[in-house]
Structures are given as C-alpha cells and as structure tokens.
Design a protein around this nucleic acid. Structure first.
Lengths: 210, 210
DNA sequence: AGTACAACTTGACAATGTCAAGTACAACGA
DNA sequence: TCGTTGTACTTGACATTGTCAAGTTGTACT
C-alpha cells in the first residue's frame, strides 16, 4: 500500500522549514516565496499555510529556532582556552556564519515581528540571559545589574555588527585587499576582546594583563 | 494650460525615491512594491522602471544616496566637544536613526547588490575613507595601514551593531526595563568610546585619561 | 519638416500571497 | 458499526505584484 500522505506527521513542517531556511541562505529573505518553499518541500502550495499561518509566520518560526540555537551555542562555549569575551565573540560569529538563514531573519522584526510572537520573544530572552551569564564571566557578577546590562548590550553590538557586516555588508568583497576575510575577522575579534579585557581590568575586577 | 507631465524633469525621480524611502522606513524593505511607490508618487506603475530599471535598481539608488549621506555626516562631525571615537559613534547612530529608510537598505546586498552597482560601490568606499580619517584622529596616522584598517573595521562593527539592534532588533521593546532607550544607547556609546580610548592609550599614541 | 530621443503611459502576462472550500484519514464516543 | 469531530492537507479562485512589450507625447536638433 502506498504510504498515505498522513504518515508524514510533523515531518512536513520540518521539510517546509528547512526548504525556507535553504532559500533564505542562498537568496536572502525577500526571495522567499511560499509557493517555492512548498514546491521544494514537495507539498501543495497551501501546506505551509497550515503550519505557519502566513509568510511572516514562517519567518517567526525560523527566528524562534534561531534564538534557541544561539542560546545553545552560548551554552556550549568552551571557555578553557581563551578569555570569555573572545570565546563569546567567536561563538557568535561562527553561529552567524553557520546558520546564515536563521541569522538573516532573527533580527528583522519588520518581517517576523519578534515582539509579536510569544515563542520567538521567549527564545530571544533566553539567548540574552545566556549572554548575560557570559558577561558575568568577564566582569564578575558583583557589578550592578544596569552596568552589566550595558556591558552585555555593548558586547552584543560588537559581535552583531561584525557578523552583519561580514554576512550581508559590503565589506567582504570590496574593502579588504590582500588579507583574507578570516584573518581580518580574527584581527577584529582580537582587538575587540582586548578592548573588553582592558575595560574589565579598569573596572578592577580582573587583573590587567598589561 | 495644464502643466504637461514633462515639466517634472528630474522631479519624478526624486518623488519616486522619496516615496520608496518612506515605505521602507515605515514598513521595511520587503514591503516595498513598485506599484505602491508609483501610486504614492502619483505616476504610472511603469514610471519607476524608467529611472531605476527594476526593483533592485531602486534599492541600489537608495543605498548609494545613503552612503553619500553617511560620508557627509562623517565630514560634518564636530570633534570639539568629545573624543573622536565618541563623536563618530554618535554620528553613526544619529545617521541611522534619522535615515532609517536608507540604513535598512545600505547593508543588504541581497536586495541591492552593493558590489554590483558601481555608483553604490564608490559611495560606500568614500564613506569608508571618511571613517578611516576619523580612526586616524583616534589612534594617530602613524600606525601601519593594516592595523588602522582593523581598527576602523572594529569601530564600524561596534557602531553598526548598535544601530542595527536599535532599529530592527528585539532590543528596544523587550530587553530594557526601567531605563529609556536613549539612556541605554548613551551608556553603550560611552562604554564603547571608553574602551576605544583605553585601547588607543595602550597603543601609546594618546595619553591615558585614567 | 523630419528625425531622434527622453519621459513617460497603457496593456498584457506569469507568478505570488492568501482566502474559501473541499477531501481524506484517524480517533473517539454511542 | 456508525456518525461526529478534528487534523492534515489539497484544489480552486482572486487580487496584487514584477516586468516585458508596445504605444504616446513633447522636446531638441538637424
């Protein structure tokens, strides 16, 4: 007996999601068409609507998954070899480059409405919580929460700006001559980490490495 | 005599561009439809094609204008009251918040192909040149070019990440409680600037303000 | 007067997002 | 065993979109 379409179950959802992520990764978020997604997933053009409601629903789902993955990536960081700040930067960058499809969507609330969607919002919050913990490793946990928050926000900005410029910006192709992109990224990460270390040292919480 | 449509001249181009920027500013880049732009500009649905070729052409034009405006904003920075780094961060942030429509497009080469378009590429290069000059004010001009480039890249990442998170990210609505967004931004800019100053001091080029 | 060109407009078409209405199967209570 | 309910889709239809092709209208130059 031919397997009924019912045998898929949650399968189709995953298929649709993966097809969407692949499209975003290769052609960008605007190029994502519901019908193309359906076609690649081998389902009717309405199947995606069943699971995601509409186009922005699919983006919201990808965004949620992205923040969950990011939180996990933060949790998996190995702090044994480098400073927490540098390890964090590296983790963020490698997450962004590994999950371009997710990353392109996660911070675009014009298309996925992070704040409108509850699941996405909590996933984002939990990723930020992990970030705060990493910050605590850098500047200690005795700093007042507002300052810690500012520090976290700052580190996030550093990492996010770098990732964004690398992935979608005009930097990789044009502005760097003679030096490989990876080397440039390393140099920037090193500089960032060093600046953070200096700041932390000045805050009197970590011995300066001079 | 009714004014002939011809009397517009370059006018229509400007009208179309402004309509497009307004749409992007309020609804994001994906929501931009050529026909809606034409409708708002009060022209036929094909007029925009005459000037911009296709949808990505309009994005490229906005991007080019954006980079030109950014370069100008860098040129107009007043360095008399603050450190060059801080003045630069403030300039970048206020540019991004003032020209959201441009900013949303400038770094998205998936939709406007910065590198494909010559005008956009040169505008972007000239903005980066201005940035390099600002960096020279911070770390001196005797540093070797590669290090200066890394420093510029780093500062750009800081500023860009902050701007991106503020404008499109999940930050403004969710993650900051009790403190106004502007105050948070100020705090981050101050921290960034301070870190940059520390780094510059350590490079031995500017006296530490300890 | 005639030709060339810029600056549009009108018309057409395939593809898209989405609403509405079906269909098929599984699970459950009577 | 039968009907009901719900899920997981599919098919059909429609307005809207990006874009190609073919006008039209005025301006500039020869």
């Amino acid at each position: 007996m031919v397997p009924a379409p019912h045998d898929h179950h949650g399968d189709v959802r995953r298929l649709v999601l993966d097809a969407a992520i692949a499209i975003i990764e290769s052609d960008g978020a605007e190029s994502l068409s519901m019908r193309e997604v359906a076609r690649r997933a081998g389902v009717s053009h309405q199947a995606p609507y069943h699971y995601f409601g509409d186009r922005s629903g699919i983006f919201a789902a990808i965004s949620e998954e992205g923040f969950t993955l990011l939180a996990q990536a933060f949790r998996d960081v190995d702090f044994s070899n480098t400073s927490p700040a540098k390890a964090g930067f590296i983790a963020y960058l490698s997450f962004a480059r590994k999950h371009v499809g997710h990353f392109r969507v996660m911070f675009r609330q014009d298309i996925c409405g992070v704040t409108d969607n509850e699941g996405t919002a909590t996933a984002a919050s939990s990723a930020f919580d992990e970030l705060l913990q990493m910050v605590a490793r850098t500047i200690g946990s005795s700093v007042d929460p507002t300052a810690a928050h500012t520090f976290a926000f700052t580190m996030w900005s550093h990492a996010h700006g770098l990732a964004t410029l690398v992935i979608d910006g005009p930097l990789p192709q044009k502005l760097l001559a003679g030096v490989s992109l990876d080397d440039q990224i390393d140099a920037v990460i090193n500089l960032c980490s060093h600046m953070v270390a200096l700041e932390a040292a000045e805050m009197g919480l970590v011995p300066s490495q001079s």
